[in-house]
Design a protein around this nucleic acid. Structure first.
Length: 398
DNA sequence: ATTCAAATAT
DNA sequence: CATATTTGAA
């Protein structure tokens, strides 16, 4: 473990010294007159960096940028070390020159970023352990405390985008939104849009510039409608310390696993959906494509509609079926299995919380055969409650 | 742990 | 396009 050679300890370097930046360290270094001292410090720092690199190596997928930074710092310092070494006078351009012969890893760190496969079990185990101890990536799970609901109402024009603004909760990251796709000031640096030209679907954009699967995903999580492609987060790579640069090509390979962002069917969206549906003559007459066309919602994909339609059908089927068998809760209770439990409606003084009329027309009970409801005119009317749960009490008006 | 909903696979 | 299964979020 903590095996630092005695001679190193005898030197005056503080093992715990941590400069703010590499630049700081270097300038610190330059104030040391003695070359051997310089080298000692340099090496000390280097080994700490390498130590850290080996720790983080298990997370190279999740923290590609950290890897990048570390690698960069290491190579920089190695270069510096070479400069100070009397042997190698030429400043040299590239890094890996094993100036630590006692080092056992012949797999030089500089290659860490090249090979990301071939993870041995060691690494996985490592990762697991770390993960359990340090919870680094849970952020995207529940990083929002539903502190104040009434924040995002200002969300620009797009009514469809209304649903999830859960991202803000996180920390530090900018509140990407507000300015939609207009001329705007997309900061951006390199990766950036490019893909944005095509108006196809935002997933292309996302796939195009998404970095890192888990982390970034959490960021993207919040807004997904096409209206707000905005400036998601790609500044990550741009903000490196002055001395560190040299963009690398890591990370790009591993986010092929990017999953499509869940479409959130906001009430508005659903309304359009239902409208389209009835224009097309009922839920089972309509076809996803037609529906989508009719909805005229930009960025909405066929599959999304399809999926929604599927759910819709399921729900609309279930309700009347129960009406045949159980004349019970047709109107009063409204088959609310577990949905309307959100009585968030009565929030404080607003009063008029629940617009979903629990009464409707009494026609429902009459049908003895549950299946005879081809035209879901009424089904639709009822069905509007099938989605009356709404995660967010956020009131929405057209 | 359960359950609903969207995504994706068949 | 429909249905089944998977994934993931509440």
């Amino acid at each position: 473990m903590g095996s630092v050679p005695a001679e190193e300890l005898s030197l005056d370097l503080r093992p715990t010294f941590i400069p703010k930046t590499i630049t700081d360290f270097l300038s610190h270094l330059s104030s040391i007159p003695s070359n051997p001292d310089k080298l000692s410090r340099l090496h000390d720092f280097l080994s700490r960096l390498e130590d850290e690199l080996s720790k983080i190596h298990a997370f190279k997928r999740e923290l590609p940028l950290s890897m990048l930074l570390l690698n960069d710092a290491i190579s920089l310092l190695k270069t510096e070390s070479n400069k100070c070494t009397p042997r190698h006078s030429p400043p040299v351009l590239e890094e890996f020159i094993p100036l630590k012969k006692e080092h056992h890893h012949d797999d030089d760190q500089d290659r860490y970023h090249l090979r990301e496969n071939l993870d041995n079990e060691n690494e996985c185990r490592d990762k697991k352990n770390w993960m359990s101890s340090v919870q680094l990536w849970n952020n995207h799970n529940k990083l929002e405390t539903k502190k104040s609901e009434e924040e995002g109402q200002s969300v620009a024009g797009d009514p469809f985008r209304s649903c999830s603004n859960k991202n803000g909760g996180g920390r530090a990251f900018m509140p990407f939104s507000t300015f939609s796709c207009s001329s705007s000031s997309v900061p951006v640096t390199s990766v950036s849009l490019a893909a944005a030209t095509k108006e196809e679907k935002e997933e292309s954009v996302m796939n195009g510039l998404s970095l890192l699967s888990p982390v970034m995903k959490s960021l993207k999580e919040g807004c997904a409608s096409r209206g707000s492609r905005s400036s998601t987060s790609n500044r990550a790579a741009s903000s490196s310390p002055p001395t560190l640069h040299r963009a690398t090509t890591i990370q790009q390979q591993q986010q092929q696993t990017a999953r499509k962002q869940r479409r959130c069917w906001s009430p508005e969206l659903h309304r359009r959906f239902v409208n389209a549906l009835q224009k097309l003559g009922g839920s089972q007459a309509a076809t996803p494509k037609q529906i989508r066309e009719l909805m005229q919602v930009d960025g909405l994909t066929n599959d999304e509609v399809k999926s929604h339609l599927q759910k819709y059908r399921l729900h609309t089927r279930r309700v009347p079926a129960s009406s045949a068998n159980q004349p019970v809760v047709v109107l009063g209770g409204l088959w609310m299995s577990q949905e309307q439990y959100n009585d968030s409606s009565k929030v404080s003084s607003s009063g008029s919380g629940s617009p979903q009329s629990p009464l409707l027309l009494g026609a429902g009970t009459s049908r003895t055969e549950g299946d005879s409801m081809e035209d879901d005119e009424d089904a639709k009317s009822e069905s509007y409650s099938w989605k009356s749960h709404m995660h967010k009490p956020g009131k929405i008006d057209v």
